[in-house]
Design a protein around this nucleic acid. Structure first.
Length: 422
RNA sequence: GGAGACGUCGCAUAGUUCGGCCUAGUGCACCACCCUGCUAAGGUGGAGAGCCCGUAAGGGCUCCGAGGGUUCAAAUCCCUCCGUCUCCGCCA
């Protein structure tokens, strides 16, 4: 949720942001109006309630024989109070609905526009070249006995796979490598629930425009999370945090579930886009003024991972229209995928400023004693998808894979992954 | 899944019998000041969250797990849900 104070102080900032995102600008005016309607209703109700409270004391103190008359008199007032209270509830709901649909105002420098309007921040590493025709990740994965799509489909359907043998080990290796670095960086490891309540799902903003991406279990009224960000953000919901000793940082390890409803026909081959995968996610709760520095920090952790794994990548500043509603800025780190001849997103890191925290009611105490929302940030540190870039980048002509040095300790020192005989 | 007990302002508790004197008491911890020669004790005051009006001082409203209901009036009575505990059942 946006800061309601912004509506009163600087609605133009919100209009500018909405416009850059390609979202409704008129929503801002509706919100301003709903805010004043809400406050009018509250004033009316509170005045009535105050006189009712006062009258109640009179009734309580009155001698027995006078009570009956007084009670009769109070009934009319009670009806008025009830009506006024209903009016407040209506006005509050209206306000919440409108304000809740205004996205987080973007930060300075975030480019306007849609998916293709990103700003390139940097490109790192040589694009790998081969003196043979490179195989794609699935072909390689099958050669080395790492990926089994056919049986995935048999058991669970399209976009499901088995990671087997070295494939399973590879995923655990990447995740563990990320986890070790996260721990060294002060992140607390957290294995999170992947089924969450509706209010948590809603609070993290995933039931908005992309709600059809989310698996839902009606029998239990629970949602399967598409990222541990959901549980990580919900972890401190409704709490007042102590950030005096610095930010609270977590590394959440979980399986992620996505319906991929809007992506029919795209990336149908291999494990680039699947319904279920594993991910290690960084999540930070910081003071609002430290959010941008923390964002840079999360990005640096991601880049270190990519560099260590010997991948070529670029970093982009995602355009406003391509941001989630909670994010005020998002950097994607995209690795070069040789057989696609393009960069594909491996990680993404978002600065949600105070937007997500306000919705989940996560605050800290200022020196003045006032409580105010913290800022939250998240960023991927490792996922199953990385296997794609690793296999393709480090493949050799015979189908074997040269294991990046940094990863070897997590594979028992393995240097080369050899094809398995069929 | 069945039966039962419980959920109070950081922690611990009183209050719920029988609705109004609860503006929720007390202890501990906490903060400020005072007193005191000293690992302390004592005294005084302060101190929860949110919202509304107000430049402010200040005033008002809401919150006793959550949400409804009954009532002039609900921590207290009723219903639903959530959570914790105990016993039974079931169990990849």
């Amino acid at each position: 949720m946006i800061d309601p104070q912004l509506l009163r102080d600087n609605p133009d900032a919100l209009r500018t942001s909405q416009s850059a995102r390609g979202d409704s600008v008129g929503l801002v005016d509706e919100a301003v109006e709903a805010d004043s309607a809400r406050r009018t209703a509250i004033n009316a109700f509170e005045a009535l309630r105050a006189s009712q409270n006062l009258f109640g004391k009179t009734v309580a103190a009155a001698p027995k024989d006078e009570k009956k008359a007084l009670v009769a008199q109070a009934q009319g007032l009670a009806a008025e109070v009830k009506a006024a209270q209903a009016a407040v509830a209506l006005a509050e709901a209206q306000f919440a609905r409108i304000v809740g649909s205004i996205a987080n105002p973007i930060l300075d420098g975030v480019p306007s526009g849609g998916e293709d309007d990103f700003v390139l921040i940097k490109t790192v590493g040589e694009i790998p070249s081969f003196d043979f025709t490179p195989r794609d990740h699935l072909e390689l994965g099958e050669l080395i006995g790492a990926i089994d799509m056919g049986r995935g489909a048999k058991v669970s359907g399209t976009r499901f796979s088995f990671l087997r043998g070295i494939g399973a080990r590879l995923e655990l290796a990447i995740m563990n490598m990320g986890l070790d670095r996260a721990i060294a960086g002060g992140f607390i490891p957290l294995i999170t629930p992947t089924l969450v309540r509706p209010e948590i799902m809603r609070g993290t903003g995933f039931l908005g425009e992309h709600s059809d991406e989310v698996y839902y279990l009606p029998a239990d009224d629970l949602y399967l999370t598409g990222t541990s960000e959901v549980a990580l953000a919900g972890y401190h919901a409704d709490e007042i945090l102590d950030l005096a000793d610095g930010p609270l940082r977590y590394a959440g390890w979980s399986t992620c579930y996505r319906r991929e409803a809007g992506s029919g026909g795209r990336d149908t081959r291999g494990i680039i886009r699947v319904h279920q995968f594993n991910k290690l996610e960084m999540f930070s709760y910081v003071l609002p003024e430290d959010a941008e520095a923390e964002h840079a920090r999360l990005l640096s952790f991601q880049e270190d991972m990519l560099v260590s794994l010997g991948l070529s990548y670029r970093v982009i500043d995602t355009a406003a229209g391509d941001l989630g509603s909670s994010a005020a800025r998002k950097y994607d780190v995209e690795a070069w995928v040789p057989t696609q001849g393009t960069y594909r997103e491996l990680t993404s890191t978002s600065n949600c400023t105070t937007y997500q925290a306000r919705r989940l009611d996560i605050r800290y105490r200022q020196e003045s004693g006032r409580t105010t929302p913290v800022a939250t940030l998240n960023g991927t540190l490792a996922t199953t998808r990385w296997i794609v870039a690793i296999l393709e980048t480090h493949q050799r002509e015979d189908g074997s894979i040269l294991v990046p040095e940094a990863l070897r300790p997590y594979l028992g020192g393995l240097e080369i992954i050899e094809p398995v005989s069929a």
